[in-house]
C-alpha cells in the first residue's frame, strides 16, 4: 500500500529524513515510533503530498507522491499532528463539510465511523474548539474517515490525550483493520507500539529497525535488570561506571540496567553497589520492552 524507497528530505543543512526504506502491507496497522524531531512528521507530510522529497520515491496506493498527488489525495485520510479542524464550526458541521468536499454523504451508520460517531454524537452541536483533547482527536479521526479512505495517515494522534481516551482511540484503530484500511500511525509512546502489527523505529531521520513488536523485543540480546532503591537516581552514575554495564537509564522510579556480560547475575550488581556504599537495593532480572530495544538501537 505504501512503498518508500531511498527517501531523503533535508531542510537547509538539517537532514530530516535520511535514505528511508519502508513498505507497508495492505490493511496493516503500522506504527512509526520515535522521539520528537526524529522526522516522523516530515514523512507524513510527504506521504500526504504536502511536501516534496529531496530525493528518493514514495508511493501511496501505487501512486507517486510527486506526480500523482491528486490520485493520492482522493484516497487518503490524514490527521496532522496539530488539531486542524474548524474550531468555530460544530462537530456535525465539520464532518458534513469534509464529507461534502469529498463528494460523499455523511452516513452515521457506515461501519467505518459508526463506533466513533457513537462516542462523539452527544456533542454534535458543540463547536469543535470547545471539545476536550480526546474528543477532538476522535472528531478528527471521524473527519479523516468520512470519505472512506483506504490509507489512513495519523501523525501523533494521541499526543496530549488522557490515558483513557488514548486507550479508546487505539481500540478504534484496531477495528479499522477489518474495514480494509491501511493505517500508518506515529507515536512517541512506547506502550502504544505493542498495539501495532509492525513498527519502525526512527531516529534522526534514519530507520533503526522494522519488524513486529514481538520480533523487535526478541532481537534484544543483552541481560536486562531492574534496579530500585529509595534513592534510585543516586545509583545511575555508579552503575554507569560498573565495568560490566552496557547502559543504565531511569524508568520512572526504577533503573533499567543492561549488562554486557551474559553470565553476570543480580548478585554481581548488588555486590558492586554495596561496595560503593549503597544499601537496600532491589535488583531483579527483567524482560525487555520496546523502549529498551529502542534505547539499545539508539546507542549502537
Amino acid at each position: 500500500m505504501v512503498q518508500i524507497e531511498n527517501l531523503s528530505r533535508h531542510f537547509g543543512s538539517v537532514q530530516a529524513l535520511d535514505n528511508v526504506h519502508l513498505h507497508i502491507e495492505k490493511n496493516q496497522l503500522f506504527g512509526l515510533i520515535g522521539p520528537d524531531g526524529a522526522g516522523k512528521s516530515t514523512l507524513f507530510d510527504i506521504l500526504a503530498t504536502l511536501r516534496l522529497p529531496s530525493s528518493g520515491t514514495a508511493r501511496v496506493h501505487g501512486f507517486d507522491v510527486q506526480t500523482k498527488a491528486n490520485q493520492i489525495r482522493k484516497r487518503i485520510g490524514f490527521m496532522p499532528g496539530q488539531f486542524s479542524l474548524y474550531q468555530d464550526l460544530s462537530v456535525l458541521e465539520n464532518i458534513r463539510f469534509f464529507a461534502n468536499v469529498y463528494g460523499v454523504a455523511f452516513e452515521e451508520s457506515s461501519p467505518l465511523i459508526r463506533d466513533i460517531w457513537q462516542q462523539i454524537a452527544p456533542f454534535k452541536h458543540r463547536p469543535a474548539g470547545k471539545l476536550s483533547g480526546g474528543m477532538k482527536q476522535k472528531l478528527a479521526l471521524c473527519c479523516a474517515l468520512v470519505h472512506k479512505p483506504t490509507v489512513l495517515l495519523l501523525d501523533e494522534p494521541t499526543t496530549g490525550v488522557d490515558p483513557v481516551s488514548r486507550k479508546e482511540f487505539w481500540e478504534m484503530l484496531q477495528t479499522l483493520k477489518s474495514q480494509n484500511i491501511t493505517t500508518l500511525v506515529s507515536t512517541p509512546y512506547m506502550d502504544e507500539a505493542n498495539l501495532c502489527e509492525c513498527i519502525a523505529l526512527i531516529q534522526n531521520g534514519k530507520i533503526l529497525a522494522i519488524n513486529s513488536p514481538a520480533a523487535i523485543v526478541a532481537q534484544f540480546e543483552f541481560n536486562l535488570f531492574g534496579v530500585q532503591s529509595a534513592h534510585s537516581n543516586a545509583l545511575i552514575n555508579p552503575l554507569r561506571q560498573f565495568e560490566k554495564t552496557q547502559h543504565c537509564f531511569a524508568f520512572g522510579k526504577m533503573l533499567h540496567l543492561t549488562l554486557k556480560d551474559a553470565c553476570a547475575t543480580e548478585k554481581d550488581i548488588v555486590e558492586f553497589l554495596e561496595k560503593q556504599g549503597h544499601k537496600n537495593v532491589d535488583v531483579w532480572p527483567m524482560k525487555p520492552g520496546i523502549e529498551d530495544c529502542f534505547i539499545e538501537l539508539m546507542q549502537s
Binding site: A48, T49, L50, K74, P80, Q82, S84, L85, Y86, C143
Partner: peptide
C-alpha cells in the same frame, strides 16, 4: 495558523 490549511491541501480541492 489553525492548521486547517493542511486539511484543505491534502483534500482533492
Amino acid at each position: 495558523e489553525m492548521g486547517t490549511m493542511e486539511q484543505m491541501n491534502v483534500s482533492p480541492i
